[in-house]
Design a protein around this nucleic acid. Structure first.
Lengths: 257, 257
DNA sequence: CGACCTATTGAGTGTGCTCAACCCTAGTGG
DNA sequence: CCACTAGGGTTGAGCACACTCAATAGGTCG
């Protein structure tokens, strides 16, 4: 086992700190070969809010790793407008479809000021030959991407909107790129309509639910700052309990706002 | 470019016909190296209806290619029962998540008597080193899998159930493993509840819609044999037209059965 | 032929969407 | 400094669609 870091991103960081010599020793790979991988990576590069990383249907030259911030990808089927989005936070990789097929099947947009690494696909391909284990790393990335979408699909299919939103809040509290110190505080770097697009709902429904949650003392909402006040009750929701049951068993508030 | 067949499955077929010598010449790869790939493949093996190829959460030793028939994969989130399924037909590959991560995140079941190829993951891994281009082939497969799920997600999000079903019928007519000669005839090798699980609906709704479509002369239904009578109108549905509009503009039948 | 699974049909209800109005904040320019 | 604008966000009323529960018919296999 020559080159099997737990997280490719960690290595990228190291690369950009010019520690190739160190890495070469650590992984037992020749310096020149690592250089090949180094050549594939550019970054970290700042990206402004609303900026597009790549567009659906265009030829793809690179994949991206999120260093800081958040992105959404959305795709449009031929005729229709409807659009669901996928969310990407710190440590996630975007545009993996491009690794095999050479075109992106979605459009990626920054939801807030962010920074990314850019990995050139052709360079990555040649690096596969030189750096043993890299190919396994890439396959692993794509596996994770498939699993992530599977998760998301299950979320989208949950019966009620409240269930979806509760699950989403829990998801954000661990993955949203907030302080690890304060898992109960969420700063969402996106608009309601982005949340809605992720959950397969409308902005109105999202808004209504947030206030409903707040009325039941499950959360506090102040524009884009959310504080989770009753994690246990929120978990109950996510598991599929209906509003009244969860509220009745876990918090002492009037049932119907 | 040494070894880049348009379809990996085609090569597998060839393998099982013991044509390694031919392949070696054709792709310019040494015979011994191809043997490595050959060792990774077993099949075609018959699979009975209802038989399980692999189970969610179990360690994964192989991926599968459908030679004939159809399969569904379904996954279950921790606590809940709810389950959506993905469908696989002739030429599709199952269990690709296992290529990176070593466990399956879903359960695969045969919907009808089928046959599959089995590709050992460890052997495939070693073959990557020997057969240039194979790695690209695998990445391509996984890309396609991601795109396929993206398509499915869009389908699941379509507004009305009629839209979903219409899209599904069109999908089946090209991919369902029927006669290429008769694109208007569909033999579905699955139960209504499998259709429902794929579309994110209930069996009742699927049943109701099929009869409704039939009443409008869009299709003929006889148990699991479906004949598409008005492809144009069905396409209209798939694009999002409501029932009455599509029916009114395209067929001359009473609007309300 | 009987037993079981699959499929169909019906009646009633709840949830989230649609349409629409209104509030609030921030940015822009006179 | 304030008026104006525009986009995001909240709230309300009404409705349509698909789900739930339930009963019956059809098909297939032993």
């Amino acid at each position: 086992m020559h080159f099997a870091p737990p997280n490719l991103l960690a290595v990228l960081w190291a690369f950009c700190a010019y520690e190739i010599e160190t890495l070469a020793v650590r992984y037992g790979v020749r310096r020149e070969k690592l250089q090949r991988l180094r050549d594939a990576v550019r970054g970290p590069t700042p990206v402004a809010r609303g900026e597009i990383l790549y567009r659906q249907g265009l030829k793809a030259g690179a994949i991206f790793a999120v260093a800081r911030g958040s992105f959404k990808t959305s795709s449009i089927d031929r005729q229709g407008r409807p659009s669901l989005s996928e969310l990407y936070f710190e440590g996630d990789f975007l545009g993996l479809e491009a690794l095999g097929d050479a075109t992106h099947n979605s459009t990626a947009e920054a939801l807030e000021p962010s920074t990314v690494f850019r990995l050139s696909v052709p360079n990555l391909r040649t690096a596969i030959v030189d750096v043993p284990g890299l190919e396994k790393e890439l396959l692993l990335l794509m596996s994770k991407e498939i699993c992530r979408r599977e998760e998301h699909r299950l979320l989208l299919h949950k019966k009620t909107a409240a269930t979806k939103l509760a699950s989403f809040l829990l998801y954000l509290s661990e993955r949203g790129g907030n302080d690890k110190e304060r898992p109960d505080y969420i700063k969402l770097g996106m608009r309601r309509q982005d949340v809605a697009a992720y959950l397969g709902l409308t902005t109105e429904t999202v808004s209504r639910l947030l206030t409903r949650f707040a009325r039941h003392s499950l959360i506090d909402v102040a524009q884009r700052h959310i504080k989770l006040r009753n994690l246990k009750a929120i978990s109950q929701f996510a598991k599929g309990r209906t509003l009244w049951v969860a509220a009745a068993t876990l918090v002492t508030s009037s049932l119907f706002f």
